[in-house]
Structures are given as structure tokens and as C-alpha cells.
């Protein structure tokens, strides 16, 4: 449980960080809060030649508001975010993002870049149709959440790029956000969320899944029983040591129904 040796860089500016990534590409791994990467290092599931510590880049911390739009700096910790006035759905989701001793170091950008299928931020990004801002030495680009999430533990960030912010607009309003977890703060066994007629199931399969057929049923005012049955059919679940695929579909469908009721 000890990491293999690596070279360590601690850039003092975003420009310097991007230059290091440009030079070292695939050999370098950015380190945000380390709450996912450091366990991977300890278990030697990741053995990068170089770690680029983003911890001293103040330009990536904090949030900016413009009307109903919020841009959250990628290196903002979950705990820093929790201390700010936030749209209800974010305030409700954040206590589920690890334990408070994890939220003190874990960052929004780190969670999005890590793209764990059970994590809250990738699900929120898809649900709220967030835009992800990526930077490289050659310039910046914006990606919609649906294009950013490629698969389990896989985002669209290129080796020479850094995620610098997540932009949300219209995140206010009624919502439902529900998880089943063994202890508060543990990884979800199953999760579902609803906001402005959009529905996402997470911790169910390979990736946070938008339930478009269920959304269509909502627009047609389908009955709660129909919604639950459709959700159970639509959720693409996988089983593992924590829960079977059948459990995830059944419990996921129940959570979908409750999330819709909460958001009504």
C-alpha cells in the first residue's frame, strides 16, 4: 500500500501547469485533491512517472456568478463549496460526496475528471447539462457534460489538457436527489436525480445515465406506476460485489419515482 516513486512538480500558475503537461503528456498525472488518485497510487493501480500538483493554483479555486450562471473552479474543494449559498440540488448532493474528512481535500474538478460511475458530480453535470471548460497551451474549449463523460473512469480530457471549471446555468428550482449508501458519505450503491424534467440514474452502470424515455413519459403525464416500470426497463445496470444488477434496476426505479415526486 505504498506508492511507486514518481517525479513531483508543483506549478505556481495554470500556464506553467499546462506547459508541464505539454512536455510530459501521458507520463504526467495531474493531482487535484488526491482523494481518488492517492489510493490508486497506493494500490499501484496508477504508476505515473510524474505527478503535477495543482494545489497551488489559486486561479482554479472559488466560484463566479453571473445571473443564474455559476462557474465553479475545478480546484474548489467540496467543503469550500458547501460553505457557500448554493442552488438546492447542489446543497443536497454535496453531503453525499464522501465523508467530511474527504470533502475537505476532494475537489469538484477532481471528481469530474476521475469519472467514477458512482460519483455525484458526473451525475450532476449530466443532469444539469453543465459545460466543462478545458484548457491547454493552445487554448480553451467548452464541452457539454454528455460529450465530456466517455465511460467509466474516462473523460474527454486530453493528456495535455486540464479541466479548469464547470459551468452551470439554471441549476435553481425544485429537484429530487436520492442515494442508497451503506454509510452516509460512502459511494452510492444506487442513485437517481431529477431536475426540470430531466432524469439521471447513477451508480447503476458504467456511467451516469440520462433516462430519456422516462423523461418523455413525464412530459406525457404518465402514471407513477408506469414511470417506475419504465425506469426499471431503461436503467442499464451492472452487478458487482456491492449490489446485483437486478437490485440496482429495482431500487433505481424506486429512487427515480421518488426523485420525480420530490421535484414536482
Amino acid at each position: 500500500m505504498k506508492s511507486a516513486p514518481f517525479e513531483y512538480r508543483r506549478p505556481a500558475s495554470l500556464a506553467e501547469a499546462l506547459q508541464i503537461l505539454d512536455q510530459h503528456g501521458d507520463d504526467a498525472r495531474p493531482l487535484a485533491g488526491g482523494q481518488s488518485l492517492i489510493p490508486l497510487l497506493a494500490m499501484r493501480l496508477a504508476q505515473p512517472a510524474m505527478i503535477v500538483d495543482l494545489g497551488r493554483l489559486p486561479e482554479l479555486r472559488g466560484i463566479r456568478r453571473d445571473g443564474s450562471e455559476i462557474a465553479i473552479g475545478a480546484m474548489t474543494t467540496q467543503a469550500q463549496l458547501q460553505r457557500l449559498p448554493l442552488p438546492g440540488i447542489l446543497a443536497a448532493a454535496l453531503p453525499h460526496v464522501g465523508h467530511f474528512q474527504i470533502r475537505s481535500r476532494g475537489t469538484v474538478g477532481g471528481s469530474l475528471a476521475h469519472m467514477d460511475p458512482a460519483a455525484e458530480w458526473p451525475a450532476l453535470a449530466v443532469l444539469l447539462d453543465a459545460e466543462l471548460e478545458l484548457a491547454a497551451t493552445s487554448g480553451r474549449r467548452l464541452l457539454r457534460a454528455a460529450d465530456f463523460a466517455l465511460g467509466p473512469m474516462t473523460s474527454a480530457i486530453e493528456p495535455n489538457e486540464l479541466l479548469v471549471s464547470i459551468r452551470l446555468s439554471g441549476a435553481e428550482g425544485p429537484f429530487g436527489f436520492l442515494e442508497v449508501e451503506r454509510r452516509p458519505g460512502d459511494f452510492a450503491l444506487v442513485g437517481a436525480a431529477c431536475h426540470r424534467g430531466r432524469l439521471v440514474a447513477f451508480a447503476t452502470g458504467a456511467i451516469a445515465q440520462r433516462l430519456t424515455r422516462c423523461e418523455a413519459l413525464l412530459r406525457e403525464d404518465g402514471s407513477p406506476g408506469d414511470l417506475r416500470a419504465l425506469a426499471e426497463a431503461e436503467i442499464e445496470a451492472t452487478g458487482d460485489v456491492h449490489a446485483s444488477a437486478g437490485y440496482r434496476r429495482r431500487v433505481g426505479a424506486a429512487l427515480v419515482q421518488r426523485a420525480v415526486e420530490a421535484a414536482a
Partner: peptide, 28 residues
């Protein structure tokens, strides 16, 4: 040693943090 048990919790600049999930150099 991977952040689940909490036994290694310390205060880092006043906030509780897992010392097993923090590189010493990050605490510069």
C-alpha cells in the same frame, strides 16, 4: 490506507483530512 476507515484523520490547516490520502509534500 485508502481513505475508508478514518483512523489516520488529522487536522490540516484546521480541517479534518485523511493523512493517508495526503502526500507530505502537499502539506508544504
Amino acid at each position: 490506507e485508502h481513505g475508508v476507515c478514518g483512523a489516520c484523520t488529522v487536522l490540516l490547516d484546521g480541517e479534518a483530512a485523511r493523512s493517508c490520502l495526503t502526500l507530505a509534500v502537499q502539506a508544504e
